[in-house]
Design a protein around this nucleic acid. Sequence first.
DNA 1: CCATAACATGACGATGCCGTCAAGTTCGTA
DNA 2: TACGAACTTGACGGCATCGTCATGTTATGG
Lengths: 213, 213
Amino acid sequence: MAPPTDPSRPLRGDARRNRERLLDAARALFAERGVDVAMAEIARRAGVSNGTLYNHFPTRQDLIEAVFLDRLEKNVELAEQARAADDPWQGFADYVTGICELQAADRGYNEVVTRGMTSPAARRLQATATAALADVFARAQRAGTLRADAAIEDLAFVVWGISRTVDLTGDHAPELWRRHLALLLDGFRAAGAHPLPRQPLAAGQAHQAMTPD
Amino acid sequence: MAPPTDPSRPLRGDARRNRERLLDAARALFAERGVDVAMAEIARRAGVSNGTLYNHFPTRQDLIEAVFLDRLEKNVELAEQARAADDPWQGFADYVTGICELQAADRGYNEVVTRGMTSPAARRLQATATAALADVFARAQRAGTLRADAAIEDLAFVVWGISRTVDLTGDHAPELWRRHLALLLDGFRAAGAHPLPRQPLAAGQAHQAMTPD
DNA sequence: CCATAACATGACGATGCCGTCAAGTTCGTA
DNA sequence: TACGAACTTGACGGCATCGTCATGTTATGG
């Protein structure tokens, strides 16, 4: 006999429908206008009152994480493809390019990437991707193509940097970020590398950096 | 006999004083809290009413440009030092590092760098800096240390990218951006460069990118 | 078919910011 | 010193967003 407000009880039919509509509306609006659109507008687009929106997603962050969780799944997938690639460097480069393509394809996700996702589900997926990526990274370093003094955490520079470029040039020059990325990737190559200063961002610190609140 | 409201007539004593106070207050608040602080708070900090603030600076942009004009002068200075440097690459690298240091030192300026400044005075300084930089760039390319397929406009990637890293890690790891920059600079080296995709951002387009309004 | 828990509604108060303006004050000059 | 222009004041209306809540509606199991 479950209590009347069992958190995991299946939603009532209409509630489930509305939830889907809200997610669809948010997905669309986030993609085209960014993640800071007015909550009321999302509700309106979903054909639902704002009260209902807050019923399902008490905070904007809840909504964001629900909308973009599948991007993290895609990320895991990319990391595993990279691990399976024949050429270590190519695997690495393709992975990095892949996540940047995700950013370029969705303005909202491009913003989220610099804010971080904190739900348990998100962190679990993130951890899985990181684990796979560690293999990719180490393999490319062993092969001597990825510079030895680079750390996985340095990939944050790629994500953050490309995020800015996509943000600023996405409308006008939608593929320009690839040029930015090419420069950065050459910077990650072992050939001709000059020693890096400072320590890399400590593991887990990247998340702190993105959630100062 | 100048008309009563000559735009270039010297300000009255109290007006000049208030203007200075406003600039000081804005400088301080911009540096610590970014360029989007409430106008009213700037006025309060200056010990002046908000009406006076709007008298002197009708728009926030006016205030921003007045506050940060000297950063552009510093930029010109850096470019000329770079031109005078013995080693072409070192001159280039020092210049880039210098502008990034300006960004790291002031949160407001770090934001402005991605929004652009549009006043005539600002554009003039910008043009001067760009002219000097063109020499620096060409010289380093002739020396064979700076990759031949890089364009001056590609430096926007540096500025924008470092801006993000400073933004996200400035509080917690104030010097981490140097690591990001080192990776990028290695990407700009001729040694081991792989061809860049796409065209660089067309000259002047960078400004467009930063001012979509 | 009914009872009730689950859900939806939309108006509302609160908040924070912007930019203006009529009225009052201060400066500089004659 | 007195006068007019320059300057300052701060309250105000407008706007946008947020999140809540009392009330009304609907789905679902018995």
